[in-house]
Amino acid sequence: MRIGDICTVQTVHCKRDVTVQDAALLMRNHHVGDLVVVEQPNGERVPVGILTDRDIVVSVIALGLDPASLLVGDVMSGELMTANEEDDVYETIDRMRFKGIRRLPVVNSLGGLAGIVCIDDLIEFLAQEMGELSRISASQLEHEKKARH
């Protein structure tokens, strides 16, 4: 299955020049724990970083810094890994596990933001897969009963 099929399409995003305080309010208003930081060079929202609620706590609040005076670009996680929406779910899981990444922006063929996938999305997908596997035994018994009568 493609990662684009299970990612969250309605992705909350902002630009680097937004204050950390405004970014925190955006997270609060949309009930999310992260923002994808984008640039729009050719009309496409291209992911360039990610800002998490943890980034704000560890890099701003814990140090006693003023979130109204810092920009998202100053504290965002910069080394950004993305997945193409055509990438295989299991390969994406392997990449996230290898890098220790909990959230991953998903991009379209032009490099524009298509969504975001997080651990919760993957757990839900895998739980559904496990549910389908659990039905194999019941299905096998039904086929066996029909074949013997």
Rank of each mutant, 00 (worst) to 15 (best):
G112E: 06
V117G: 01
H30Y: 08
T52R: 11
T82D: 06
L71Y: 14
P47L: 04
A147R: 11
G4N: 07
A24L: 11
L141F: 02
Q21C: 10
E39N: 10
V107S: 09
G33M: 03
G73W: 05
L71N: 13
G115C: 01
Q40P: 04
I93V: 15
G64C: 03
V89H: 13
S109V: 02
V38K: 10
P47C: 04
G100M: 01
E44S: 12
M96V: 12
H31E: 15
E91S: 14
M1V: 12
V72I: 03
R97N: 11
A62H: 14
L35N: 09
D88Q: 08
S109H: 02
G115Y: 01
C118N: 15
D88P: 09
N84V: 13
G111K: 02
Q40F: 10
F98C: 10
P67D: 08
H30T: 10
L110T: 13
N42F: 14
L113Q: 09
I101T: 13
V75R: 14
E44H: 09
T92S: 09
V48I: 14
I116K: 08
E124V: 09
K15L: 04
V36Q: 06
R28G: 15
V46P: 12
T52Q: 04
L113G: 13
G49N: 07
E129A: 06
V46K: 14
L70H: 09
I61T: 09
L126S: 04
R28E: 15
V20H: 04
V12D: 04
Y90E: 14
E85S: 04
R97D: 12
H149I: 01
A138W: 01
V58A: 07
S139E: 14
P67M: 03
G64E: 01
R2N: 13
F98R: 15
R2H: 08
I56L: 07
L70R: 06
V72Q: 06
D87R: 07
G111A: 07
